[in-house]
Computed example of a mutant assay.
Amino acid sequence: METSNKQTVLFRDLGNMEYRHAWDLQEQLLKENVEVKSAIRNRQSAIGTLANGDEIENEGVVLDTNHYLLFVEHPPVYTLGKSGDIGNVLISEEERAARGISFYYSNRGGDITFHGKEQLVGYPILDLDKFYTDLGRYLRSLEEVIILTMAEYGLKGERSPGETGVWLDAAIPGKERKICAMGIRCSRWITMHGFAFNINTDLSYFNYIIPCGIQNKQVTSLEKELGRKLDLNEVKEKVKRNFEKVFDVELV
């Protein structure tokens, strides 16, 4: 029986979960990995032989970081990245409450975005020491996962220079429309946060913000582009397979 040499990523579909709960879970998984890396470094300093990221035994227990990929849908929520401008929120706190929309200041990169029903949010918690310590390359890889998925539906996903995420008609003024927003955090080369891919998302929520702080550009969804509702589980499976392909890993 053949055994795979690919790295393993633990996959969890969290279903519909409040943003704060999913954020807390990510922080917990990141913290556990950072603590493992600290313990490994301490042991390496003591024995001075193993390279960073290698497995090492600590009192008979093998210490190693774990990779995760979390999928989730959030109830309606606006999140503002650490470099974001609150001026890009065009709706008052009272109006948000009346419409049942939560709001959080997030510690991810990027500006304001929306999460809601029928949007696929992916949170990879990866130890980039085991891949490459290059955040630009990591973001381009996340974009590639979405671009490959869109191609399976006959759509040409594109990058827009200086604007992280995935677009359609990115180079045509007036026609640019964003279908997937991205924002990450990284600590000791452990990632968290990730991407928000609009599938059958209610795009009217984007009318109350300046998405990602980018003026005069549209937001779109697979449903809008294809003119039909998508099976969210079908899209999830495609994204999972393309994640495995791009990162050369195995989801379990």
Rank of each mutant, 00 (worst) to 15 (best):
R43V: 08
D202K: 11
N198W: 05
E73I: 06
K217G: 02
L155E: 02
F247A: 07
E94V: 10
Y138R: 01
E158V: 02
E234F: 06
V145M: 05
G53H: 07
D54Q: 14
D134L: 03
Y208F: 15
A171C: 04
F195A: 05
R12F: 05
G84N: 07
K156Q: 15
I210H: 07
L148F: 04
N207F: 08
D13T: 00
Q119T: 02
G100Q: 09
I40D: 04
K6G: 03
N88R: 05
L70I: 00
T191P: 04
V36M: 12
L63F: 03
A97S: 13
L10P: 01
R185C: 03
R96C: 05
L29Y: 10
H193N: 05
V9M: 01
S187H: 10
E225Y: 06
A196L: 09
R43N: 10
E55L: 09
V61E: 15
R20E: 15
H74W: 05
V249G: 10
G15Y: 07
N216R: 14
N66P: 00
G136V: 05
S221Y: 10
I147V: 13
K178F: 01
L126V: 00
N58S: 14
I40Q: 15
T49E: 15
V235C: 06
T113P: 05
V89I: 15
E223N: 13
K130L: 15
L203W: 09
E143V: 03
R43G: 03
Y138N: 03
F114E: 09
G174V: 05
G136L: 10
A97C: 07
D13M: 05
I125E: 03
I112C: 10
I101Q: 12
C212H: 02
K236A: 07
G48N: 14
L148H: 06
E94Q: 15
E59H: 12
N42S: 13
A181F: 07
C180V: 06
D85I: 02
T201V: 11
R12T: 05
V62M: 13
I40H: 02
K236T: 06
S187R: 15
A151H: 10
F197I: 03
V121A: 12
G122V: 00
F71T: 06
Y105D: 13
E234Y: 08
W23M: 09
F197G: 09
Q218A: 14
M17H: 02
G194I: 00
G109L: 01
F71Y: 11
V219R: 07
V89K: 13
D64W: 04
H74Y: 03
T8H: 12
A171H: 11
N233K: 14
L135C: 07
S102W: 08
